[in-house]
């Protein structure tokens, strides 16, 4: 079984927001107004040490969102992805508090915790509904994994900064890059 992960190479990310657009376009059927599953954050913008990084759900092996959810609506797929069931979600917002990456998003932010159903990156793997069904498209967006494809954000990344795939494969690609760059300043940290 694969363990799917994202990896963003900050030495390659040029803050083009192509991944953001790709994600929005690919999963549009499921996205309520204002929800953005992936974003690019630039730290030290305009200063020495500027770096951009594309952030979405990191599909943690030991997911904090899953640990705090009162409704227990999260589940792990056989590919190691962290997905959730919107029919069970009660919109309490605990996953948003627990997630280190700010991945869970809610359509509303009202009194009495009326936030609506949580939405987050699915690694373009849909949800618990039947693959490619209408219900899946409406609630979770596309399901490229079922077609044997990788997430749209990484596939469309122009500089191949954002990598998606089995952890072992993408980390070996990254290791190779670092070796070629041949400088201690060329690694991620």
């Amino acid at each position: 079984m694969a363990t799917m992960k994202f990896l963003c190479d900050t030495k390659r990310c040029i803050e083009c927001n192509g991944c953001v657009t790709a994600c929005k376009n690919e999963n549009d059927s499921a996205l309520e107004w204002g929800i953005q599953r992936r974003r690019v954050v630039t730290i030290n913008d305009g200063q020495p040490g500027e770096a951009s990084i594309s952030v979405a759900c990191m599909h943690c092996t030991d997911a904090p969102c899953q640990a705090v959810c009162p409704a227990n609506c999260f589940y792990k797929t056989e590919d190691g992805l962290t997905l959730h069931n919107k029919d069970t979600c009660i919109g309490c917002g605990y996953c948003l508090y627990a997630c280190p990456f700010g991945a869970p998003q809610f359509p509303k932010k009202g009194a009495f915790g009326s936030r609506g159903k949580m939405d987050k990156c699915t690694f373009c793997a849909g949800g618990p509904e039947e693959n490619h069904s209408d219900a899946e498209r409406q609630k979770y967006g596309s399901n490229r994994i079922a077609e044997g494809k990788l997430p749209m954000c990484a596939e469309l990344c122009a500089t191949k900064s954002l990598l998606a795939g089995d952890a072992e494969i993408i980390s070996s690609i990254y290791r190779e890059r670092v070796a070629y760059r041949g400088s201690k300043n060329a690694i991620w940290g």
Binding site: Q36, R39, V41, T42, I43, I53, F101, G102, Q105, K109
Partner: peptide, 18 residues
């Protein structure tokens, strides 16, 4: 660290909250 982002999502200007 927080940064600049085009997203208006809640807490989206911070990549990692520890």
């Amino acid at each position: 660290a927080t940064g600049v982002t085009t997203s208006h999502g809640e807490f989206h200007n911070q990549p990692i909250n520890t």
